[in-house]
Design a protein around this nucleic acid. Structure first.
Lengths: 348, 348
DNA sequence: TTGAAAGCGCTAACAA
DNA sequence: TTGTTAGCGCTTTCAA
């Protein structure tokens, strides 16, 4: 049985092209792959035959021989979560530019599923895998090293055992603290996701923020560290209660994620507290909506675009080199940017 | 050179397993595929050998022989757009359950890119393609029929030429009208995306709504049909201006998409018009945020989950049947649901 | 029920 | 610069 995509008209093979062009299949292969010089006149003749027969290389055969697929895997928690959705978008775009296909697999951030990514049957035929892990630890990464080319691409999770590209979320968190302090805020609070799900994802920015405050001699009281559930948080009543933002002395709020920040904005508005006049708010992620909220949200752009771009480049590079070449794990850090918008604007 | 995923330890092949089990490769193949009965004792021996060698079938070789890949393609405008993101999520989940991989390709809703989907190199090796088209017309679909198994899976776009699964958006639009009328509203307005980009996507629900109003003898004046840009709409100032919702007589608003509706909600709130007291608002899409807005949004769930599930089932079925079997195009309609929330609640 | 063997279409080593 | 050819690992026909 022929491939599904090829049923219609029996597809042309190298052999057909060779016959039509009056050369050997070797020559056709050379023309197609451009790996070996071919005389111009021959090339033209072959090209014509290819054109005429609408020849397309059979990927499976090529793969069977060469081991390359031009397919990469992208494993992430869930395309529904803003940060990962935007990572997916960027990876897809970067891969497209390089004429590679992307197989997407969702892990739901589940530890077991993340662990089994490199051995997943769904990813068995890929050249390399971009893994946006949120639950794995260094131990897991060590176990994974030495398998297929693998690049870690979360904003926060990095490793010494395998390639990783991340944002320096610690520095970003510290930068948020500095920004808040620089605009005259002195009594900040933090909102973080309560479900300890995906702790690694939020840890860096949290510690960075605390460090930034500590630099200025500020320590947060327990009551100014609020934990809440990201999703439930969306419902305003719940958020208001959770937030206890009746705390009147708080003059700045760092929400560890944009969704959290957006929820806070709504809640504060409903509660009659003015942003940024009474209270500055900063998020993290620079998701699309953050530019359209009321007021628009100051946030950190963790450089998802750049992370994606680099991750794809790293994979491509690893794949390029043959098994022989041992390249030690590389760690690459992408620049974050603090996007200043209305929610922290200095007023009157 | 070996496949990337297989470099580590030279992977076992059928031959290795056969040697270890003391049978021919034919028998091992039979055990692996379960296609032909195998004596129980033989089966056990082979299974042990497989286990011991950690044998995994080589997908490329299998594909080269059989033409199947267990990979399907998903082509959609952009994983960043709520409806398509949720479609992607559902397709990924459905495919995962069937142990299939999904290659995702973004078209940006661009006509040319949608047209070239079936012949795209990125999708050359898939068994079938789920296409969420927004710009193609019946003519394009006809041109595509007869190539790889292909299923159309937008909420609105259907075809006579190829398999399609959609929601009955016309009925849904009409249902919205009925709901609004049933709750006592008499002077509705519509907001639709102004950029005529992806017209097909919005056409059904729009016409359905109009038909529903017509049933009750209502015709909308021009001034009550507002066009606006989905994204710019997010900025409140822009929206307010665009909306001209100073129109004081309007008591109901049908926004053809949830994002539009959510924007309207914010705008109305800022303008001091109360929802649902002064004005009812209905969206379309049932995107996650619609459940968390203030007030929560009444909207239509076009059954994206079911669409995805069915699309995957249709593809799997098409792939199952060999080329010989001609199955005529099938059209499948999925149930929509009107999700009643606060924004249309009857008050007082 | 099992074995032997013929390719699927391609890449690349070896020859010319 | 080009031709010849040996497989890559698997499925499947034909025989036994």
């Amino acid at each position: 049985m022929r491939s599904a995509a090829e049923r219609a008209h029996r597809t042309a093979t190298l052999r057909d092209v060779a016959a039509l062009a009056g050369v050997s299949i070797r020559t056709v292969s050379n023309v197609v792959n451009g790996s070996v010089p071919v005389r111009e006149s021959t090339r033209t003749r072959v090209a014509e035959a290819i054109e005429r027969l609408d020849y397309h290389p059979n990927v499976a055969a090529r793969r069977l021989r060469s081991g390359r697929t031009q397919v990469i895997g992208l494993a992430l928690p869930d395309v529904t979560v803003p940060y990962f959705r935007e990572l997916a978008d960027a990876v897809l775009a970067a891969a497209w530019r390089r004429r590679m296909s992307v197989v997407v697999v969702q892990t739901q951030g589940d530890l077991e599923r993340e662990r089994s990514v490199p051995s997943s049957p769904q990813l068995r035929h890929v050249d390399g895998i971009i893994l946006a892990a949120v639950s794995l630890t260094e131990e897991d990464f060590r176990a994974m090293s030495g398998t297929a080319p693998l690049v870690l691409a979360s904003a926060s999770v990095r490793s010494d055992a395998i390639d990783s590209v991340t944002a320096d979320t610690f520095a970003a968190g510290r930068c948020v603290a500095q920004h808040l302090l620089a605009t005259g805020r002195r009594r900040p609070a933090v909102i973080r996701p309560g479900d300890t799900q995906w702790p690694a994802e939020y840890d860096g920015r949290y510690r960075g923020f605390m460090a930034g405050l500590a630099d200025a001699g500020i320590t947060l009281p327990e009551s100014h560290i609020v934990s809440t559930d990201v999703v439930a948080f969306g419902s305003d009543a719940g958020a208001l209660r959770t937030l206890r933002l009746d705390l009147p002395e708080v003059d700045a709020l760092f929400a560890l994620g944009d969704r959290l920040a957006l929820g806070a904005l709504r809640t504060l508005h409903a509660a009659g507290r003015r942003v940024p006049e009474d209270l500055a708010v900063v998020g993290f992620g620079n998701i699309e909506q953050s530019a359209y909220s009321y007021p628009t949200l100051t946030t950190v752009d963790p450089g998802g675009q750049a992370i994606a771009e680099q991750a794809v480049a790293l994979i491509a590079d690893r794949v390029e080199r043959t098994a022989a070449e041992k390249v030690p794990p590389r760690r690459s850090t992408v620049d974050f940017r603090l996007i200043e918008r209305e929610s922290t604007r200095v007023t009157g």
